[in-house]
């Protein structure tokens, strides 16, 4: 009789269970009504089954978002885990939609499900990609905008994983500042 190694039939469990959300901008509905949970997963294999099944971000219509959050955290500022949090924001030029967008988003997903930020991965709530005509955005959301150590570690690792050149500055902004901003830019808490 042949002995089959467990490697070949046991899925690889992730540290966390994750939920993928989709937002489609329909102006006749409320913001919350436009937000839909697609699916949850907690293994490497199920992550790929979902990722391979859905549209690439670059194929989505303008106004759409994907969000990947830890199970139990909703992809909105109001969630208890996000209220005092913020985000590392990557803003992309229009040219980058073709060159970088899908690659950056997949790398972001792999950072999350692979727990790339070591012990500081506990501070991660999720990530969001916004498809917008004026320029796409990708962000990693963390739970506490005052946790400088976690935020700077996450920012350094993330920037390196994306291959963003050292001379390019990325900013971390609190959701409270983003929600109450008056102009089009939010002040950075960290860079």
């Amino acid at each position: 009789q042949k002995v089959v190694s467990p490697e070949s039939y046991i899925k690889h469990p992730l540290q966390n269970k994750w939920a993928l959300w989709f937002f489609k901008n329909d102006k006749s509905k409320t913001w919350q009504a436009n937000l839909r949970l697609i699916s949850k997963f907690d293994t490497v294999e199920d992550f790929w089954a979902l990722y391979n099944h859905i549209q690439l971000s670059s194929n989505l219509m303008s106004g759409c978002d994907y969000s990947l959050f830890k199970d139990g955290i909703e992809p909105m500022w109001e969630d208890e885990q996000n209220r005092r949090g913020g985000r590392w924001l990557i803003t992309l030029s229009k040219q980058q939609r073709k060159a970088d967008l899908d690659r950056f988003w997949l790398e972001t997903l792999l950072c999350l499900v692979g727990e790339a930020f070591d012990d500081h991965s506990d501070d991660v709530c999720g990530a969001v990609i916004n498809i917008r005509a004026k320029g796409d955005k990708i962000a990693i959301w963390t739970t506490d905008y005052e946790n400088k150590e976690a935020i700077t570690h996450i920012g350094r690792v993330y920037k390196e994983r994306l291959g963003v050149p050292p001379k390019v500055i990325i900013g971390y902004q609190s959701h409270a500042d983003t929600a109450t901003k008056s102009g089009s830019t939010t002040k950075n808490k960290f860079v």
Partner: peptide
């Protein structure tokens, strides 16, 4: 400890036949 997976390990599973 944490269940950490690096990018190459994760990418290695993208086109594996599905588990049943």
């Amino acid at each position: 400890g944490k269940r950490q997976y690096d990018r190459d390990f994760l990418l290695g599973f993208q086109f594996m036949p599905a588990c049943v």
